[in-house]
Nucleic acid binder design. Structure first.
Ligand SMILES: [Mn+2]
Ligand SMILES: [Mn+2]
Ligand SMILES: [Mn+2]
Ligand SMILES: [Mn+2]
Lengths: 241, 241
DNA sequence: CGACAAATTTAGCCATGCCTAAAAGTATAT
DNA sequence: ATATACTTTTAGGCATGGCTAAATTTGTCG
């Protein structure tokens, strides 16, 4: 019996770093900073530096790292990050649709389990769900080959006043914010219009077909992304919430 | 933001050791040896010694360890081991019943995922399945409180010739053996009778209502446990395969 | 330019959990 | 009772991935 071959498999930590780099480097080609990664991952900046050096050094390198100037993913690193992101979002959709989780409950379990999903399980979950396009928060699920439809979504706070928009996705990091959104009917697919009257980063909005405007706290508003009303209905016809 | 509180949570390794000790210490009170644990876990005996010392030393101790004389679980350790075993068997039942896994495919994924199942997920899976009593191989699933029905099952090789028995469970460690059993109709709940004619640990058996006896290789026979025909039908009426 | 603040990296540690090789204990068989 | 075989423990390492504290670099402002 062979002892234990410690093969160079991706660790949970490595996967979390790759996913964080994907999420923090905005437009393709941009770099993520050590500090931003540290904040996102809940570790110290010194730990980030150590990991980035390790990732940049290994044979098929996952990242391009320039000392003092941030890091970005190589194609191989991006592929791996998208694989983990696919696990995460498929799991959220699965926990929500098949196991009765509410949308504020799915994130934490998905964050842990995403690292331990075999190819077989990934495929069975996707098949069971009918190859879903988005997770419960409206985020697109990367395809098996890594394809990820780029949507022209912007933060609600950047949207022009008086122009009708549709909520495309909401941030899944704050459960209590999600519960409040649920209560207010703020979910992907719902129409929303920003009224004049911004005060201290709070927004006055009209939701769906309602007539009375509502004032959204900055915390809530900051978690909402939107796209133009007409484009969305064309691109995402298959989605139903 | 606090750095990272490395709390004394159960690690994957610790859970695997506890589960292995539970499985390898036969009747209550018996001890598991370092060598047996090493073989079961796929690590070296020296590593086992190190872990046993750590487990025996920590504050609410999980094991009673006597140098050179093996180890057994404390009540706390047994509770934790049963919790992990419950995760494992619930997962096997879930993968099999809800995601279309065959019974030879469930073990490996369950072995990995068992360590990352939250209480919430455990409960949702159990509810979705209607609180199943056994996994797909016939092994009983511990209840949430740790209760595990003791069944008087014995290895088929120990069963008396000519006395009708019912298969209670089969070993889940060898996928190819499971596929062969499937082909032969050897699964929990099926009647089986051992005929005279043991040769080199192979057994001559009659399966179900069939008339032609069949010779089982030692490999297959060693993975089958049985109970008396009448007892089982009373105790396990709810099970359907 | 030069000073300062913020970001980043280096240096040195620590815990976990595995390994090999060597030492020590246990059990059995003459 | 002792030699021998087998099991178990000790000793010394290594890899991963955190941490703190102390440099060092970068970028901005006067
Ligand atoms: Mn994660
Ligand atoms: Mn999400
Ligand atoms: Mn395991
Ligand atoms: Mn099983």
């Amino acid at each position: 019996m062979p002892p234990r071959t410690h093969l160079p498999v991706n660790t949970e930590s490595v996967d979390d770093y790759l996913k964080a780099i994907l999420e923090l480097s905005g437009p393709p080609g941009e770099r993520a900073t050590s500090n931003a990664l540290a904040g996102h991952l809940g570790v110290r900046a010194a730990s980030v530096t150590g990991m980035l050096q390790k990732l940049a050094a290994q044979k098929p390198s996952y990242v391009k790292y320039e000392k003092h100037h941030g890091v970005r993913l190589t194609p191989a690193g991006k592929m791996r990050a998208l694989e983990v992101l696919r696990h995460h979002r498929l799991l959220e959709r699965f926990l929500h649709d098949c196991l009765g989780y509410s949308w504020d409950e799915v994130h934490d379990d998905a964050e842990r389990l995403e690292h331990f999903i075999s190819e077989r399980l990934e495929d069975r979950i996707a098949a069971k769900l009918g190859d879903p396009q988005t997770d419960p928060h409206g985020h697109p699920i990367p395809e098996r080959n890594g394809a990820l439809p780029a949507r022209p979504e912007v933060l609600l706070s950047k949207w022009a006043c008086g122009v009708k928009a549709v909520i495309s996705s909401v941030s899944d990091r704050d459960p209590s914010a999600l519960r409040e959104m649920e209560r207010l009917g703020l979910k992907p697919g719902v129409a929303i219009t920003v009224e004049a009257g911004t005060r201290n980063a709070t927004l006055l909005v009209r939701i769906g077909e309602r007539t009375e405007p509502l004032r959204l706290s900055q915390r809530l508003a900051a978690g909402i992304s939107v796209i133009a009303a007409n484009r969305r209905s064309r691109q995402h016809r298959k989605i139903d919430y």
